[in-house]
C-alpha cells in the first residue's frame, strides 16, 4: 500500500484533520479526524476520534481510539482502549487492552488478552482468549481456545475444535468467592455450542452438540447430543444426554 507520493499525518498536540490517503497516520496528542482514511500505518498513542471508515495495512492503538465507521486492517493491535462502531475486517488482531466492537468482526487469527465486547458475530480461523469476552451473536472459528479469566458470554459458539479451560487454582477460589457470595458468574455462559471436538470447563450452556464431547468440572449443561464419544466429569451437571 506504500505509495511514494503519500504524505504522513502527525498530530502531536491537539489537532484535527480531514480524511484522505496517507502514508503514516500518527496521533500522539488529541486528534479529531473527519472523513474516511486510507493509510499504511495507523498509530494512536494519545486520543483519537475518527469520524469515518479506516483502511490501514497495520494499526496500533496504545492510547484511546474511537472509530465511528469500519476498520479494515491486516494487522491490528490494541493495548489501550478501542471503540469501533462499525465492522472490523482483519487478518490478525491482538487485543491486550479493552475493545468494544458494535458490528461484526472477521479475521484469520484473533487473540484476546484483555476484555472485549462484540455486539455482532465473530468469525475467525483461530480464536484464542486469555481474558474475558462478550459476543452478542455467533462465535464461529475453526479453532477456539479459551482460557477463562473472568465472566464471558457468547450467544452461540460453533467450530471444529472448541476448548474452554480455567487457567489455575486461583480461578477456583475466585469463582467460589464470586459465585457463592456475590453471585456473579465468572465462567462461560452460552446458549448453544456445536463443534467436532469439544472440551468444556466451567461452562453454562443449554445445548452442546458434537462428535466428541468432554464435559469437565464446573459445567452446567441442559442437554448434550454426541455422535462418537462422551465423557463427563463428576463435578459437572448434565441433565440430559443423547447419542445420535
Amino acid at each position: 500500500m506504500a505509495e511514494p507520493n503519500r504524505s504522513d499525518l502527525m498530530i502531536a498536540g491537539a489537532g484535527s484533520a480531514s480524511g484522505g490517503n496517507y502514508n503514516i497516520v500518527k496521533i500522539s496528542g488529541n486528534g479529531d479526524l473527519r472523513g474516511d482514511f486510507a493509510c499504511s500505518d495507523l498509530i494512536v498513542q494519545g486520543k483519537a476520534q475518527i469520524d469515518g471508515n479506516v483502511e490501514a495495512s497495520s494499526s496500533f492503538i496504545s492510547g484511546k481510539a474511537e472509530i465511528m465507521g469500519d476498520l479494515r486492517s491486516d494487522h491490528v493491535k490494541v493495548q489501550g482502549y478501542a471503540n469501533i462502531r462499525g465492522d472490523v475486517n482483519c487478518k490478525e488482531m491482538r487485543i491486550q487492552g479493552k475493545t468494544k466492537i458494535k458490528g461484526n468482526i472477521t479475521g484469520e487469527e484473533i487473540k484476546i488478552e484483555g476484555g472485549t465486547a462484540i455486539d455482532g458475530n465473530c468469525s475467525a480461523e483461530s480464536f484464542l482468549v486469555r481474558g474475558n469476552f462478550a459476543i452478542g451473536g455467533l462465535l464461529n472459528a475453526g479453532q477456539i481456545d479459551i482460557k477463562l479469566h473472568g465472566g464471558s458470554r457468547a450467544k452461540e459458539i460453533g467450530g471444529e475444535k472448541i476448548s474452554v479451560r480455567k487457567p489455575g487454582i486461583t480461578f477456583r477460589i475466585k469463582k467460589f468467592i464470586l459465585t457463592s457470595i456475590l453471585q456473579i458468574n465468572i465462567g462461560l455462559i452460552t446458549e448453544i455450542i456445536e463443534g467436532d471436538e469439544i472440551y468444556l470447563e466451567h461452562t453454562d450452556a443449554q445445548i452442546v452438540r458434537g462428535n466428541r464431547v468432554t464435559v469437565g468440572p464446573g459445567c452446567t449443561i441442559e442437554r448434550v447430543e454426541y455422535k462418537d464419544h462422551f465423557q463427563c466429569d463428576t463435578g459437572a451437571k448434565v441433565k440430559n444426554q443423547q447419542k445420535l
Binding site: S123, A124, G142, G158, K161, G195, D196, G210
Partner: peptide
C-alpha cells in the same frame, strides 16, 4: 448433517 453426512465443524467452516 445426518442426511449429508457432514460435521458441525464443516458446516461452520463453510459458513465462515
Amino acid at each position: 448433517l445426518e442426511l449429508t453426512d457432514i460435521s458441525y465443524g464443516q458446516l461452520y467452516r463453510w459458513k465462515r
